[in-house]
């Protein structure tokens, strides 16, 4: 089973696109003076109510005038102040797109209507594998793994009629070792804890296999039923599983 995990940069970013259309000023009555009144007219169309709302706001530094006018769309009667210079249109039906219309008069006698569209772009990481990042950006880290369904070896130490004595284990060196030898563990209490068996075996396993072990202890009463009482235990089973 092959696993590929990678860390990618932010997948969402914003783009702005501006498009301007200029016409001869002789057909337009609108003039602009940035140093004086800076008036904004916001026109919002609500599709659900089929109404058009016009907000006219005048900067405080000049004439302080605010007008909210709501008209029925069917009458197509939209009121706009003559001094208004900027028109912003918001399409509420799509929150990811914001469109702004800026109408300005250039010095050569032309009125330009510029449309700025802001779009949230979600990058499809799979569709854009050749994205070019900044050379100082965090570099990609990839973890690659190939694994199998691994079942660990298990073996048992079964003790019948446990008492309060101790025992050791003699372990023969693994096949393939140059010198055959026997490793004798430290003393292990018959009715001890699982970790005491584990501690006694770990030296052997780390020496030959570079691993530790997992040991579980299970006790059974005279009827062969699992029990948690040491005094009722007739049989104790230590199950050893090397972590290899």
């Amino acid at each position: 089973m092959s696993i590929g995990v990678e860390i990618r940069p932010d997948a969402v970013y914003t783009e702005e696109v501006e498009t301007c259309t200029c016409v001869d000023d002789t057909t337009t009555d609108t003039t602009t003076d940035d140093s004086s009144a800076d008036t904004t007219t916001d026109t919002t169309t609500d599709d659900s109510s089929a109404e058009t709302t016009t907000d006219t706001t005048t900067d405080d530094s000049s004439a302080d005038t605010t007008t909210d006018t709501t008209t029925d769309d069917s009458s197509a009667d939209t009121t706009t102040d003559e001094s208004s210079t900027d028109t912003t249109t918001t399409d509420s039906s799509d929150s990811s797109r914001r469109r702004r219309l800026d109408e300005t008069t250039s010095t050569d006698g032309q009125t330009c209507t510029c449309e700025t569209t802001t779009v949230d772009v979600e990058r499809d990481a799979d569709a854009e594998p050749t994205y070019n990042g900044h050379h100082h950006a965090t570099k990609q880290i990839m973890e690659i793994a190939y694994e199998q369904s691994y079942v660990r070896e298990e073996w048992d130490i079964v003790i019948t009629n446990p008492d309060d004595g101790y025992f050791t284990l003699n372990l023969l060196s693994p096949p393939g070792e140059e010198n055959v030898s026997v490793t004798t563990t430290s003393l292990i209490p018959v009715n001890g804890w699982a970790w005491q068996v584990r501690r006694a075996l770990n030296w052997y396993y780390f020496n030959y296999y570079k691993c530790w072990t997992t040991v579980t202890k299970t006790m059974y009463d005279s009827a062969g039923v699992e029990t948690t009482s040491s005094s009722d235990a007739v049989t104790i089973r230590y199950r050893v599983s090397p972590n290899i």
Partner: peptide, 29 residues
């Protein structure tokens, strides 16, 4: 693997019977 009843100093030698079940009988890796 051979279990050996053992004693050392104050530690008592066990009289319990012990048996080893190898991976071939329990579970092989």
């Amino acid at each position: 693997i051979t279990p050996i009843p053992a004693s050392s100093g104050k530690y008592k030698k066990t009289t319990s019977s012990m048996q080893i079940s190898l991976p071939s009988e329990v579970q092989q890796s």
